[in-house]
Design a protein around this nucleic acid. Structure first.
Lengths: 343, 343
DNA sequence: TGTGTGGTAGATAACGTTGTCACGTCGCGT
DNA sequence: ACGCGACGTGACAACGTTATCTACCACACA
């Protein structure tokens, strides 16, 4: 008992394997064997060790174990903003896969800032995560990751591809998504279709714009710059864009919003106007069906995105050495009313 | 050069401080001093070391450093489900505070399962996180954390208090919130007010129910069990509850929904019925203002909740030794129309 | 010339694990 | 009786850092 408490105090904090060994009167390695369930330990020894563990309340120091072992059983997830429902759904999926593989997950938000992304990614690497799932910040250049990847870190990019470097990526079919949106609106008779998207240096924003333009052109319609507004979907920005598009002799009769933020901003703004306006949003969102009219969207699946990326990461961690790949997750147009308003 | 590459290969993976020391032809500790910016290193030495670091692409192994130092500069965040917008907002706030303090953040979801919560919390502790922010799962008992806390881990509970143990907690004013909701509905002439909340063993659900009951009773109205439904707010559950409450000679004319999920479920269900029903939801949510009518809610502030909890955690990590405390974050009724429907 | 003194540098021992190896003790076949 | 695996056990080094302590040098001072 006094032996016990003396032992416990020694470390100041937690009991170590050494303390257990001393208390049980066995060798250090024997404790290690018992803790790890290795064979060739006599039942008598094992029992003594277990008793000592119990008495001291010992729990193994994972950090030390993993230092020795050379891997950490952690992955890092870097996204733009956990608080964005799209990314939090993605995060939930990654987390689930990580847990299923017995890994813990670091999470951090780059806040769409390339420097912060880099800093956080390198902080993860300094912690020697085994892998990284990254939603790149706009205008980031990922060459900074090369040394880490050469050192063995597995990186998988989601939603946006790596820049300056070949790396696995899991992307949504952005081009196909806006193409489908345009087709849908054309089918309902619209010929003047506006587009409000996020800042053009964001990969997904650029891709979606491309889908919009390509589909228009392929349909024999002009691509009119004045019907496009790219920028952070702040209320003022959206308001000004709508003012512009709805003015003049040929106002737009339909609008595509490039992401969930833009869609919401447009809905807010339009609700203060009198004009009827058909709308298709990119990204599905909760309650889209409860608005009047329901909001037609191009849905893509953040959960599939996250799960697929994490699965690929773990396949690589388990030794899969296939070539760098880009996986595309399909998008799907969900008609709910707002896109079906006819001219 | 061949020395260099041989050295680099040695570890199989990354160069270590030892490799740097060897290449620079200096002692191990000198490298350590340079890396940590300690004084008393001659400029000549420092320069040689920096050159070697550069050449090898060395980056320090944070895990090893922290093993030696005895702390990890990590905290763990445990919540019900990252994908729930309420919790992801909370997570974002915690993450921000962690980053501001130079800490990394582990995130995991308990999925409202006490066993999983325990397992994850202990996994965090095995990684020797310095602190823990926990949204307890329903019917969890937190005595399992006692040894960890005695060993120095700081735990702060958010949204729901610890069970079986005194611990810091940051809670919303749940009782006050539903009281305010009841007052609001009474003021608009309602006398038959239903309540649909989450499972009764969830702390917040119980508290909110209490506020509802207390305010009714204080106002001289009867508390009628048949107007209350507590359970997972699945569509069928909500549907059945509404059927019951809206039937009979004295149907409810107003309803309080106990959380964001319940509110949404109620909205969906009500939209398929003909009856007019006043509604106040607990938890604000995006687009609540865009629905027709706008949804009146009792808003509470997940960001304030998370930030306050994390701040308290870090104050304790910095040595603050005040008594265990419970901080209550106020709630605020936001009238938007759905609660203002008169009888 | 001996002696402090102050500033550098490195050897060595930790931190808490696990892997390698060597040791002793069986039981068994020859 | 002897060698020989198989088994159980523990000493020891290693993982990549940091802290402690000692050694060295140069210089100023008595």
């Amino acid at each position: 008992m006094s032996e016990n408490s003396r032992t416990r105090q020694r470390a100041g904090g937690r009991p170590t394997m050494n303390d257990v060994a001393r208390l049980a009167g066995v060798g250090l390695k024997t404790v290690s064997r018992v803790v790890n369930g290795e064979p060739r330990v006599s039942e008598a020894m094992a029992e003594r060790v277990r008793a000592a563990i119990e008495e001291l309340g010992y729990s193994p120091h994972e950090g030390a174990r993993l230092l020795r072992r050379g891997q950490t059983a952690c992955i890092g997830l870097l996204l733009e903003d956990v608080a964005n429902p799209f990314y939090s759904a993605l995060a939930g999926a990654v987390e689930q896969v990580a847990r299923a593989n017995g890994f813990l997950l670091f999470t951090a938000s780059s806040e769409e800032d390339a420097a912060q992304e880099r800093e956080l990614a390198l902080a993860f690497c300094a912690r020697r995560v085994d892998g990284l799932v990254i939603v790149p910040a706009a205008s980031a250049d990922h060459r900074y990751l090369k040394p880490e990847i050469e050192a063995g870190v597995i990186a998988v990019f989601v939603d946006r591809p790596a820049v300056g470097m070949a790396a696995d990526a899991v992307l949504a079919d952005n081009v196909g998504g806006t193409r489908a949106a345009v087709v849908h609106l054309l089918r309902h008779g619209h010929r003047r279709i506006g587009y409000i998207g996020d800042a053009a240096e964001i990969f997904t924003a650029a891709q979606r714009l491309r889908g919009y333009r390509d589909e228009l052109v392929d349909s024999g319609l002009p691509f009119d710059e004045s019907l496009v507004a790219m920028g952070h979907p702040e209320p003022q920005f959206v308001h000004a864009a709508l003012d512009r598009m709805l003015a003049g002799p040929e106002p737009v009769t339909a609008l595509i919003a490039g992401n969930n933020r833009a869609t919401v901003a447009v809905l807010r703004d339009v609700s203060t106007r009198h004009q009827q306006l058909a709308l298709v949003g990119f990204d599905d969102f909760e309650l889209a069906d409860l608005l009047k009219p329901g909001v037609t969207v191009v849905a893509h699946d953040p959960v599939a995105l996250g799960r697929t990326a994490a699965d690929l990461l773990f396949r690589r961690l388990q030794g899969y050495r296939g070539p760098v790949q880009t996986i595309e997750i399909p998008t799907r147009l969900v008609p709910r009313g707002s896109g079906e308003i006819s001219r």
